[in-house]
Amino acid sequence: MKFLLSALTIFILFATTNSSAQSGMELQLEDYQWENRLLLIFSPSVNHNDFQVMNQIIEEHTEGFTERDLKVFYAAPETDLSIHGTHIEQNSAETISTKFDLSDSAFTVLLIGKDGTEKLRSDEAISSQKLFKVIDAMPMRQREMKRDGK
């Protein structure tokens, strides 16, 4: 049953990715507060090396992202490239860039906790080990793991 649920989640993630990568999504951070952690990836280009590395990391560790209630959003020029997250529309990207003081010309990864605050910022790709270590050390995640018997 757990495998079936994971497979269904992965299917939904990829189905949503393909449809939203074309049009973009208005992102309201408040809509995810207390429900999801967010990984926001801002890149000046989808060809940026760190953007490609993050895409690979997300693809290889989808189960870990799902287990940690982590949703991925990216702001980069639109493309047909398969991205394992949801493309943020321009207006939302600008609002978030202003809120978190991001540069349009720099690569940045932000981890936003379920409480809506910034937990981690990097100007390069973040390994899944580092990302999961930061998340797993959060008090809310500790309670989740205890509740789930992990």
Score class of each variant (00 low, 15 high):
His84Phe: 15
Asp123Ser: 11
Phe100Glu: 07
Met138Ser: 07
Ile126Asn: 02
Asp50Val: 04
Ile126Thr: 12
Gln52Pro: 02
Arg141Ile: 03
Leu27Val: 15
Ser20Pro: 00
Asn47Asp: 15
Met54Ile: 12
Ala76Glu: 04
Gly149Cys: 05
Lys2Tyr: 13
Ser128Val: 08
Met54Asn: 13
Ala75Trp: 07
Glu94Arg: 12
Glu63Trp: 08
Glu63Leu: 15
Ser43Glu: 09
Pro44Arg: 04
Val109Cys: 09
Met1Tyr: 08
Thr9Leu: 10
Thr62Asp: 10
Phe132Val: 09
Ile57Pro: 00
Phe107Tyr: 14
Ile88Phe: 08
Arg37Met: 01
Asn47Pro: 01
Ser19Glu: 10
Thr17Tyr: 00
Leu110Tyr: 03
Phe100Asn: 10
Asn91Asp: 14
Phe3Ala: 13
Asp136Lys: 11
Ala125Phe: 08
Met138Phe: 05
Glu67Thr: 03
Thr108Gly: 01
Lys150Cys: 05
Arg37Trp: 01
Gln22Phe: 03
Ser19Asp: 09
Arg68Tyr: 07
Ile88Glu: 03
Phe11Met: 12
Phe65Ala: 15
Met54Asp: 04
Val46Phe: 07
Thr98Phe: 06
His84Thr: 00
Met25Glu: 14
Tyr74Asp: 07
Asp101Val: 09
Phe65Met: 12
Val109Ala: 15
His48Arg: 04
Leu111Asn: 10
Ile112Glu: 09
Lys71Gly: 02
Ile112Asn: 06
Asp104Arg: 10
Phe107Gly: 00
Ile96Ser: 06
Asp80Tyr: 02
Met145Tyr: 07
Asp104Pro: 08
Val109Gly: 08
Asp80Cys: 00
Glu35Phe: 13
Leu102Arg: 06
Glu89Thr: 10
Arg121Phe: 07
Thr117Cys: 04
Leu29Val: 03
Ser43Thr: 15
Ser122Ala: 15
Gln56Val: 05
Pro44Val: 01
Lys114Cys: 13
Glu118Lys: 15
Thr16Gln: 12
Leu110His: 06
Leu111Met: 05
Ile126His: 05
Ser127Cys: 03
Phe42Leu: 00
Ala125Trp: 03
Glu35Gly: 05
Asn36Cys: 12
Ile112Gly: 07
Glu94Trp: 02
Ile12Thr: 15
Gln33Leu: 01
Ala7Tyr: 01
Lys2His: 10
Ala75Phe: 13
Phe65Ser: 12
Thr79His: 02
Pro77Gly: 09
Asp50Met: 01
Ile12Val: 15
Pro77Ile: 09
Glu78Gly: 12
Phe100Thr: 06
Leu27Ser: 11
Pro77Tyr: 14
Gln56Thr: 13
Gly64Gln: 11
Glu30Phe: 06
Lys150Leu: 14
Pro77His: 14
Ser19Arg: 05
Ser6Arg: 12
Gln90His: 11
Gly116Leu: 06
Ile83Thr: 09
Tyr74Trp: 14
Thr95Ala: 15
Ile58Thr: 08
Gln33Glu: 08
Asp31Tyr: 02
Leu29Cys: 01
Val72Gly: 08
Pro44Asn: 02
Leu111Phe: 09
Phe3Met: 09
Val46Asn: 14
Glu35Pro: 00
